[in-house]
Design a protein around this nucleic acid. Structure first.
Lengths: 224, 224
DNA sequence: GAAAGAACTGAACACCTGTTCAGGAAAAAA
DNA sequence: TTTTTTCCTGAACAGGTGTTCAGTTCTTTC
């Protein structure tokens, strides 16, 4: 007797898996990574605690996949924004401000994905997540350098530094709350974008123009 | 009958306290914050686990004080380096590269103090630690702005971003190992210092000069 | 030197969550 | 409908570490 999964079952299994991941994401967005605990996530996803383990070998795997998922979304958004820009410099500006906006609009999630203490080891996943974004930004810097808009430099290092600057300034413990006031939010995004562009060597007059150009298209500044 | 602590006893108590803190610091420097566990620290300090609690109400207090101590040392070093510089811009350069060198030469400790997951809540202490350094750097940026060397800007935000950039680039998970080769270490410190100075608006030609000026005096680049 | 107070010891405790697994429900084959 | 395989449940388990505390040792006072 050979048991075969019916189409309907396959669909239900996939739905459950997504539900669990979604529950984890919601929990993280609301309460940070510390809120991503098996029992509560199971309740939210409307399954029993044990069921979670039929879909994810361990909590570490669940969180790793959550990180990967969020990371994928972010990378896609950054690529989209950069590709839509007219030239290499504004592509870089767009990439940076997109990261800034994303991070700002989903603070708890961003902090959880990036740096919040977790009781299981998700280092590998976090590294991968960073590597993707850093790689993307580095390649945009590279393009600008090749176009002669920026001085030659260690683009990997620069991209890493930029990311660190954005994170610390926007979601680090010293970041002031700017979500309440959209104008303040826009100012902050502009300020850090300007810092970032200058850091890699964009000259000032030009930088200001690029920043405005890059930030303005981000229509709803709090859109995911 | 009133018990009075003899001078000798007072001294021994103080010594024990320092020994425990020192043991914690050693543990953190070797294995990161996760290695700062009561039992091992007690062994290292040559006391029983329970004794630790006669000096520190909880593990959180112990770690908080450790963070404060390291932070004090760092702040002092930064002030010393900056005060010795000839002008506001080179003071800023000196401050930044001092942070960079410190962080690089005590990676595990720095990572532990700054961002490593800990099982107890040391947020307050970490925030205080950051605030001190950020405040110092911000005031140096301020001075340079007042001297007309830099454009006006949100110096607090800028300083926060600079710190984030240094940390992520030098001790973040993507930081490549540079401690082995002193030349590579110096290059890295120069590169991030240059990025930082440019970010706040130092013009390029000038920046290069400042960087060299600031980094070179750091004689033994791996000195604590 | 004896009594009283303080400091120290380290084994036992407590707590918190991730993980397991025996029993039951549902779905697929016969 | 019966049998077999898979899936789900949720209470019990496990492991690791911060914390406590009764008993012991050392210090001070008289």
């Amino acid at each position: 007797m050979v048991y075969r999964r019916t189409h309907q079952v396959v669909k239900r299994l996939a739905a459950r898996r997504s539900a669990i991941l979604a529950a984890a994401r919601e929990a993280a967005a609301e309460g940070g990574m510390s809120a991503v605990q098996i029992a509560p996530v199971a309740v939210r996803a409307k399954v029993a605690a044990g069921t979670v383990y039929r879909y994810f070998p361990s909590k570490a795997d669940l969180i790793s996949e959550l990180i990967a998922e969020v990371s994928r979304d972010e990378l896609a958004a950054v690529r989209r924004a950069a590709d839509a820009a007219p030239g290499p410099s504004s592509a870089l500006a767009a990439a940076v401000s997109t990261v800034a906006v994303h991070v700002l609009s989903q603070r708890k999630l961003a902090w959880g994905i990036l740096a919040e203490p977790v009781d299981v080891d998700v280092t590998a996943s976090r590294i991968a997540s960073r590597r993707e974004i850093v790689g993307e930004i580095a390649s945009r810097i590279d393009a600008a350098v090749r176009a002669g808009h920026l001085p030659a430099q260690d683009t990997q290092l620069a991209a890493t530094a930029l990311l660190g600057a954005l994170h610390e300034a926007l979601v680090g413990p010293l970041a002031t709350d700017t979500l309440d006031d959209p104008a303040k939010l826009r100012d902050t995004v502009q300020a850090v974008t300007l810092l970032a562009l200058r850091a890699v060597g964009v000259m000032d007059a030009r930088a200001r123009g690029l920043v405005v150009q890059a930030v303005l298209p981000v229509k709803s500044l709090v859109g995911a």
